[in-house]
């Protein structure tokens, strides 16, 4: 089995506080004042100069791990541990400050259900649009179309109605159905199951497990629902304050997480 995802020394830094003055004109004034060696005209009294002042915050610090192909990794941690930042970097939404991520295969990330759905478009049109946004070709969607509709449990007579008329449950089911049928080697999912009823959540977990086992896809899954993580994943990664505390069998990691919250 080969490595699907390899993360080396990954760090992400954010700057805190107000960056710049928020308007180009004020920034130009501050900048020219700095060039002339004068004090920044927009500095508040008793405050250090704005430019050059950099309060930093490491959302992630020196993360290293590997995920094998076909493995299902659950990433858990408290709020603000860096889980979402990690997934954002893996999904290429934002660039890391340091480190390298290498991945083998096409990556599909599902950070939010229904991204790019256009309310004026019908269910059918949105399946194509959403699929394309997630990186599927038209031919892929054509092939999976019936299966997607069946999975979403949306009655066929609604599929040509604009999605703005859908109930929120229908909306979510359709969106997840598209994502579940992606032909990607790596699937990244963040808290996507927080929506939908319990029965549909079960179905989604089952589907993710199935594609991973049958087609050897790699799944990276973030959730606060430890039950769901235990059910889906084999390995777990525990993040806290931007550091990787533990990478082990999912049950051990979940126990460690329980201790962490218990403190």
């Amino acid at each position: 089995m080969s490595t699907a995802v390899k993360v080396e020394h990954l760090s992400k830094e954010y700057r805190l506080g107000v960056i710049g003055n928020g308007s180009l004109w004020k920034d130009i004034q501050s900048w020219t004042a700095k060039l002339q060696g004068k004090p920044d005209p927009w500095t508040k009294i008793n405050e250090e100069s704005r430019i050059g002042k950099r309060e930093r915050f490491w959302a992630l610090k020196d993360i290293n791990f590997e995920v094998q192909q076909g493995e299902r990794l659950g990433i858990i941690g408290r709020n603000g541990a860096g889980k979402s930042t990690l997934l954002k970097i893996l999904s290429q939404i934002t660039a890391p400050t340091e480190g390298v991520v290498k991945m083998r295969g096409h990556v599909a990330s599902l950070l939010e259900v229904g991204t790019g759905f256009h309310p004026e478009f019908t269910g059918r049109e949105n399946i194509y649009l959403n699929g394309a946004i997630l990186g599927m070709s038209k031919a892929d969607i054509d092939r999976n179309f019936d299966e997607i509709v069946a999975f979403s449990e949306i009655e066929p007579e609604f599929i040509d109605t604009p999605v703005k008329r859908y109930s929120s449950g229908m909306y979510v089911r359709l969106a997840f159905a598209v994502a579940a049928h992606l032909n990607s080697e790596i699937l990244i999912a963040d808290e996507v199951l927080a929506v939908g009823d319990v029965k549909f959540q079960e179905k989604c977990l089952g589907k993710m497990k199935e594609v991973s086992e049958k087609q050897g896809r790699t799944v990276l899954f973030v959730s606060h629902n430890i039950g769901a993580v235990r059910q889906l994943c084999q390995t777990g990664a525990l993040l806290d304050h931007g550091k990787l505390l533990m990478l082990d069998n999912v049950d051990k990691v979940a126990d460690e997480y329980a201790k962490l919250i218990g403190q």
């Binding site: 970097i89 893996l90 660039a95 890391p96 290498k102 083998r104």
Partner: peptide, 24 residues
Amino acid sequence: WDVVITPKRMWLGLNLKELRQYKD
């Protein structure tokens, strides 16, 4: 590797191959 993510930002580069993949 199919995807390599680094902090480096490129200045001039048009990833035509990638754009072709997303033609649909």
